[in-house]
Design a protein around this nucleic acid. Structure first.
Lengths: 239, 239
DNA sequence: TCGTAGATATCGCCT
DNA sequence: AGGCGATGTCTACGA
């Protein structure tokens, strides 16, 4: 199923990529290229050796020497491959892989040489993941005292005009409590988010209702701790 | 500089990858593999054909059929490659690429077969980008009336106890104005962010100072528009 | 190193 | 299709 070409001509690489994509395969091209992106921003990559990965869902990734994120990418638009002939020597020809011209996000990758081409039938992502905020919610529902002693959950993802509260319930004194969960050390945006929910709940519920806000996270930054205090919100640490 | 192997044995692929990495090259392995990640979360990829990209900075990327983001990845930890012998048939051997065992984020990619291997000397990312929030700031400084008629900037990235204000200045009436820039349609978090800055400035400045907040963006969602209105903040549209 | 916020964020869920 | 928020976010920039 996997096919390979070493040091193909541009024509051979173009045919190889086109055929493989037509067969629903992913295509990897390693070679000297430059790239331009035009869409929500403009980006230009100078000439250099990179790897282009063309996935069956028409995601294009251009990877260079470092980093998890591609140096350039495009997704969602149809992709075409072609050899553009130079008027002079054939050595000035280019293999061009680019998104459909009509797309809002236009990526053009132009190879002056392709050193290796590989096509393969890739596995669909079917990963099992654990350790996310969703797991933290399960833990809190199984043991509400993690939020604070006496807390009792009444609903999850409760709607408010400001968005959904992760966990909604009442504290030991019977006050309404909105709980925001973060599974990483919390920053200022988490405090603001919780404050939005609490404010919205105070507006929605009877005026005499006391509404508390509790941020549950493995930690908070100092600035965030101060913001919580100023807003009358509570931080509750979980491992 | 670029090297290629087609359908190598596991031993040959391991030597190839090890040598290439030692030479500071990037290595692409396409083959049947499964992968496990253990760190901030747990993740498991079942057996299937994928591409592993091992960059010179020891970033590992495992790409499958779809999406811009890898199905699994690791970065920052030393990477080792080895062939693990099965006690039975050699056909049960595995090529294993994994991060150093001591690393907090542990990725292990285990190939039962390698179909193609490529090594190349990748270009460093040296992209020029435009069209970001930074560009919007330049535009606003060059033409402050984009914020609102009469606005005059006094500082950028001004520090407050709640964070940095993108642009700090005074409006036509001499009131202090904090400007938050977004180069995409703004959501609730942008309104909260601006509110944090305005509240902090009111606290810091003399009690009699009027502090306004202006969100400059190509658009806002309806809920965000309401949040801004409730907080007494202004929205200013820019193209 | 930590904190903070942007990103061509991407991705998934829900309306 | 758009809004909304999480993400193993990643990445750059300061203090």
């Amino acid at each position: 199923m996997t096919r390979t070409l070493a040091d193909p001509s541009l024509d051979a690489a173009a045919d190889f990529a086109s055929d493989a994509a037509g067969d629903g395969l992913a295509v990897s091209l390693v070679g000297t290229c430059e790239a331009t992106f035009s869409g929500r921003a403009e980006r230009r990559l100078p000439g250099g050796v990179r790897q282009l990965l063309w996935k069956p869902d028409d995601t294009l990734l251009v990877h260079g020497a470092s980093g998890r994120d591609p140096d350039a990418w495009a997704s969602g638009a149809a992709v075409a491959v072609a050899v553009e002939r130079a008027s002079g020597h054939a050595s000035d020809d280019h293999l061009v892989v680019e998104t459909d011209g009509g797309a809002a996000d236009a990526l053009r990758v132009q190879f002056s040489a392709v050193h290796a081409a590989t096509a393969f039938d890739p596995a669909s992502a079917d990963a099992t993941v654990s350790g996310t905020e969703s797991d933290l919610k399960e833990r809190v529902l199984a043991d509400p005292d993690l939020v604070e002693p006496g807390f009792r959950p009444l609903a999850t993802e409760r709607e408010t005009p400001a968005g959904r509260v992760d966990v909604y319930g009442r504290d030991a004194d019977g006050n309404v409590a909105a709980v925001e969960l973060k599974n990483v050390r919390a920053g200022p945006s988490a405090a603001s988010q919780l404050e939005r929910y609490v404010t919205a709940l105070r507006r929605d519920l009877h005026a005499d209702a006391t509404v508390r806000g509790v941020l549950v996270a493995p930690g908070v930054t100092e600035k965030t701790r101060r913001l919580l205090a100023e807003s009358g919100l509570t931080f509750s640490e979980v491992s």
